[in-house]
Write a protein that binds this DNA or RNA. Structure first.
Lengths: 186, 186
DNA sequence: GACCATATAGACCGGTCGATCTACTGGTCA
DNA sequence: TGACCAGTAGATCGACCGGTCTATATGGTC
């Protein structure tokens, strides 16, 4: 059996770290993670080799989930590429409004992790994946300059997440959506 | 004499902390700050009451300097409000290209500081100051909706700084400038 | 020359960090 | 039954954390 009926220590540690590192930042202590996950200290080092390995793995699975969330938001919007792109900003608006929204996990990691931390590679790859997702839709729209336009959309997304993190209660994604509309063109 | 010919411990500590907290994050150790500033341990606690006080003061003087930099970039652009606003993005492009650019200091602080840290008040006030600066120019332009437009410009600035931090070598401020042009209107 | 505020140097405090280690537990399977 | 193994529990390690302390040096003012 590779599937478990109950989450094992590895999975408990991953979800606990995903939650705590987002809520309290990368600097959370190992003890807090172990306590939250109800996992023995040793298991962490068996499964992940250390805190850095755990953080990196958290970023990796989060990136997979978040990319899936982008795809899902676009899939739910139908077949029109323009509507699919705008739907991303509608979805983001909801994300930012969630009471425990704390900004972009990957930007926070980029700013807080040591320059040689293996997590950086994960966050950069995630960023490229989202970029390519956007660019593909723009190409489907026959956008004249899909690559720089995707870059602009990414900038709008980052801006909305940053403003949302620093000014709770506002609707930066709605403001970004208006600009995205112009980027997409028509 | 209130002015010194040579910077005193307080000033040395401030500049050292300004540099190190930006380069290595808020999490730098007190020892590293003291060593960099060539200042006795006790002086830190005499002048700032502790690390939190020093960090807060660093944010305060940085905010003053950065607001002055915004004003200077606009002043150098002349009298036309439209040109003054676009000049902000030209200036930002240069800032982002600097080899030691590491993203927005205030966003990093917002993400890394404990929720009850006094530094938060400083960063929020700084954000409002920039916002008001932009809004004033938009009013001078008789922009129909100066407040939400200022919010959008702020979003573009944050987005450019975020992309600049995560994708060195690109020119996000140039991409943001194109969108800013549309926000400002004609 | 005496005085005092300011700064320096650095030992020292309790606490926490990430990491390693031993000893024990419960279930699996030959 | 007994070997095996992943997981648990927790003591312990050295390093570092922010903060307090004493002792000493310096430089300006009466």
């Amino acid at each position: 059996m590779t599937t478990r009926t109950v989450p094992g220590p590895r999975e408990r540690l991953l979800t606990a770290a995903k939650e705590l590192t987002y809520a309290q930042g990368i600097g959370v202590g190992v003890d807090a993670l172990l306590k939250r996950a109800n996992v023995a200290r040793r298991s962490l080092y068996e499964h992940f080799g250390g805190k850095d390995g755990l953080i990196t793995e958290v970023l990796r699975v989060s990136a997979d989930e978040d990319e899936a969330a982008y795809r899902q938001a676009m899939r739910a919007a139908g077949d029109d590429p323009r509507g699919r792109l705008l739907a991303v900003f509608d979805w983001l608006d909801g994300v930012i409004q969630e009471p425990d929204f704390r900004g972009c996990r990957y930007l926070a990691a980029e700013l807080a992790l040591a320059p040689d931390h293996p997590g950086h590679a994960v966050t950069r790859r995630y960023r490229e994946r989202v970029h390519d997702l956007l660019e593909a839709e723009l190409r489907a729209l026959d956008h004249p300059r899909p690559e720089p336009a995707a870059e602009q959309l990414l900038l709008l997304i980052d801006g909305a997440l940053a403003v949302g993190a620093t000014r709770p209660g506002t609707h930066p994604a709605a403001a970004a959506r208006l600009l995205a509309d112009q980027v997409i063109g028509g």
